[in-house]
Design a protein around this nucleic acid. Structure first.
Length: 155
DNA sequence: GCCAACGTTGGC
DNA sequence: GCCAACGTTGGC
């Protein structure tokens, strides 16, 4: 696989939204909302673009790891859940005239036949250098190096 | 459930 | 602007 655009890793807790849930969304894909971290927000708002690759990572899972691949089908849009008082992502400090949070829309592409677990990532000479393998790295959106992506899709 | 490693908040 | 207290993430 040859890739020219950006490559990202998105974390999700599968009990809340799994790659199977993403697959069920079909060609419309899913708006990735609820990101409430500024560094992750900046990636979503400023860098993630249509046609970028997105590795889906299941966190808080058994095992945690990379489970598949999705594609960005629409770039940054205001995350309206921040204005919804019923939403668990409601943020009273985000106002319509000055939105604070953004999301992108992604579409399921494939679920890997076997999860690439965090333990395998940490044990791999190259993959162990990925940000997701680093202790204390809690970002839910992070860039992925091209060489790491190639290893993963050929795993 | 524990707790390390963060990020955020707010008093000063 | 400092930093203690607090909240959250997420592996284990």
């Amino acid at each position: 696989m040859t890739v020219s655009g950006g490559i990202w890793l998105f974390k999700t807790e599968p009990t809340i939204f799994s790659i199977d849930d993403l697959q069920k969304k079909g060609s419309a894909g899913e708006f990735w909302d609820g990101v409430r971290n500024y560094q992750a927000r900046n990636f979503l708002r400023d860098q993630v673009q249509s046609n970028d690759q997105v590795l889906i990572y299941h966190s808080n899972s058994d095992p945690s790891g990379i489970v598949g691949l999705a594609h960005v089908i629409n770039g940054a849009q205001v995350d309206l859940s921040a204005f919804d008082q019923q939403s668990k992502y409601f943020d009273p400090q985000s106002v319509i005239t000055h939105p604070r949070w953004y999301g992108v829309t992604i579409r399921w592409f494939e679920t890997f036949p076997k999860i690439i677990s965090l333990a395998e990532i940490k044990a791999h000479p190259q993959l162990s250098l990925m940000a997701v393998a680093k202790k204390g790295q809690r970002l839910s959106i992070m860039p992925v190096a091209r060489e790491h992506f190639q290893i993963i899709v050929n795993y």
